[in-house]
């Protein structure tokens, strides 16, 4: 299997005086190239830390833990820039990621740091802005954009560096439903069309719908690993982890509990409707 990112025996802990807090406990994980992985976890489950470990922003705190990006150890300071270029990262708050007061200048920040010639940077900026549908706004100031638009600009800023993998740390947490849909649409498109490896970290289960693989993170450990269908039919574990189960999934779960033979692996309302429809027809026969 061709793994873009590989974590071996990775642990991470904070030391605050005498107190030691383990955030990540011994994780072994491979992220396959071109895959779409969703990491689900409630607040404080260590999901942001896990993301930052993946692009070398944080290093494992245990001696035998290693994180490999394309086979390169993230501990090596010389290859830091190379790793950051390969593994782009988008954060939760778009306001705290934008550096310049003109959209196109902000998107140019990454390529400029890579030392690309101005014409090349220009080309990449235009391309990146078009790919997130923000090209018309290239001269605007981020301050005048909506949250969803700002987050799209932030994504463009990463895309302009041409990463092979995109890690998104709760990119929709501060957005309204419209902005959330825009961002999710872009992410799924990059995965489908560009074969970009996507790691999406979230606590919205609905966003896991399009993933190939869902990981459930709880207190620094991966407690479940499977397809969205597999994970979502296990409502009991999800609830124990403290996650908000989508209403449609919960409805199916309750129906099943009260004796109706229905599949519980649906996430969206449409899917749930189809499952209920199928179950009703089965009973008639």
């Amino acid at each position: 299997m061709d793994n873009q990112i590989e974590l071996k025996n990775v642990a991470f802990s904070y030391e605050n005086g005498e107190e030691k807090r383990d955030i990540i406990k011994n994780i072994n994980l491979g992220i396959e190239r071109g895959s779409f992985t969703v990491i689900l976890g409630h607040n404080g489950s260590g999901k942001s830390t896990l993301a930052k470990l993946m692009n070398g922003l944080y290093k494992p705190t245990n001696a035998d833990g290693t994180v490999l990006v394309d086979g390169i150890d993230t501990r090596d300071e010389k290859t830091e820039i190379e790793i950051r270029r390969k593994v782009g990262m988008v954060f939760q708050n778009p306001d705290n990621q934008l550096i310049a007061s003109v959209v196109e200048e902000d998107v140019a920040f990454g390529p400029e740091n890579l030392g690309l010639p101005p014409e090349k940077t220009r080309e990449r900026v235009d391309e990146a802005l078009k790919s997130v549908g923000m090209y018309e706004y290239r001269k605007s100031t981020p301050h005048h954009l909506s949250g969803g638009q700002k987050q799209r600009v932030a994504i463009a800023g990463i895309i302009a560096m041409r990463p092979e993998c995109l890690i998104l740390d709760e990119p929709t947490a501060m957005l309204d439903p419209k902005g959330r849909a825009e961002v999710m649409d872009i992410i799924t498109r990059f995965n489908r069309d560009e074969k970009m490896t996507i790691v999406l970290i979230t606590h919205f289960m609905e966003e896991a719908e399009f993933a190939d693989r869902v990981l459930l993170l709880c207190d620094g450990e991966i407690i479940r690993d499977g397809t969205p269908g597999e994970i979502f039919s296990d409502i009991k574990t999800l609830k124990e982890t403290g996650l908000d189960v989508p209403q449609s999934t919960e409805l199916l779960y309750e129906l099943k509990k009260s004796g109706i033979d229905v599949d519980t692996d649906a996430i969206s309302v449409e899917e749930a409707a189809a499952r209920i429809y199928a179950a009703l027809h089965l009973e008639e026969k």
């Binding site: 692009n55 922003l57 030392g115």
Partner: peptide
């Protein structure tokens, strides 16, 4: 952190667009 993720390293080798 966001700047670091965008390969910023204090302006060494930076070329303006």
């Amino acid at each position: 952190e966001a700047m670091e993720c965008r390969c910023y390293n204090g302006g060494v080798g930076r070329v303006r667009m």
